[in-house]
Amino acid sequence: MARVAAVDDAAWESPWRQRPVGTRVFLSFALVLAALLMPAWPGCALVAGGSLGLMLGPARIRASLVAVVTVPPIAFIAVGVLPLAVQVGGTPFLSLAPDGGARALGVLAHGVAGTLALLLLVTTTTMVDLLAWCRRLGVPAPLVEIAALMYRLVFVLLSTAVAVQRAQQARLVADAPLPQRMRFAAAAVGTTLLRTWDRASRLQRGLELRGYEEDLPTLPRVVA
């Protein structure tokens, strides 16, 4: 919850909010396209370095936040490319593929560069600005509303999970034996899902009572 909220807060406080949303979207997706089409070296290295430089420089994103949001996806990509480096069968049964290392490093470089380019948009642009921009582009209202609803429900789920976790910490669950901690964890998952479903249902009921029929437009930020 803290990480997601920190990213959202950084986007709200970003000095790039004064810039048009389309400019930020174009810059980010241009870097993503460059990461896909350019060779791993030096193309992806330049894209990754440029994205990091923009986040830490003009966008003024904290280095600690950049590390928090980049480490999990990069670790996921690194684990995902491991099968490219090995081959199964033969003697020995599991061995390093002839060109596996180069292929794995190439995919890793493209994935890391593309991820950093996309995170440049995430850390500098709020979802509210993106949805308002999509409305101006003429994106169908149902699609925009679904995106806004999913964005809202993510925070509902996370806030519920944090509340359940804090309640368990107050009961000193961490000091319990391992089997009991596993039961508490299973109960926490069930409680989180049930409470999230209840809060989502109340959100829907509230919209219905307010006469919700088409969409819920937000006030866009006026960029000078």
Rank of each mutant, 00 (worst) to 15 (best):
I74R: 02
L209C: 10
P58M: 03
A117Q: 00
V156T: 13
M182V: 06
D129R: 02
L153W: 11
Q18W: 04
V86N: 10
V4A: 14
W197F: 04
G22M: 01
G90Y: 02
I61E: 08
G101M: 11
G90A: 03
E214V: 15
Q18H: 14
D129Y: 08
G190N: 01
V21Q: 01
R3E: 12
V68P: 00
V164S: 06
A34F: 13
V162H: 10
P92E: 10
A109Q: 05
S201V: 12
A147T: 13
Q204Y: 10
L119H: 02
H110M: 06
V79S: 04
V223Q: 12
A113D: 14
V128G: 12
G49E: 09
L37H: 10
L84I: 07
I77K: 00
M55V: 03
A163V: 02
L153A: 05
T91S: 03
Q169C: 06
T115E: 01
L105N: 09
A63Y: 09
A167S: 15
L54V: 06
A148P: 06
G100F: 02
L84Y: 00
S51P: 04
L82Y: 07
F184G: 06
A117P: 07
M55Q: 07
D215A: 15
A35I: 02
V139K: 07
P220T: 12
A102W: 11
A11T: 03
L118A: 05
F26Y: 03
A170H: 03
M1D: 12
G49P: 10
G101A: 01
R205M: 12
P177S: 14
A97M: 06
R19F: 15
A6V: 07
A2P: 14
T125F: 02
R181I: 10
V154G: 05
S201I: 13
G101N: 10
L56C: 11
L52W: 03
R17P: 01
V66W: 12
A167F: 04
W197H: 13
R24H: 04
V4Y: 13
G206H: 08
R181M: 04
P15Y: 06
L131M: 15
L118Y: 00
L94I: 08
F155Q: 09
R135I: 03
M55T: 07
F26V: 13
A167K: 08
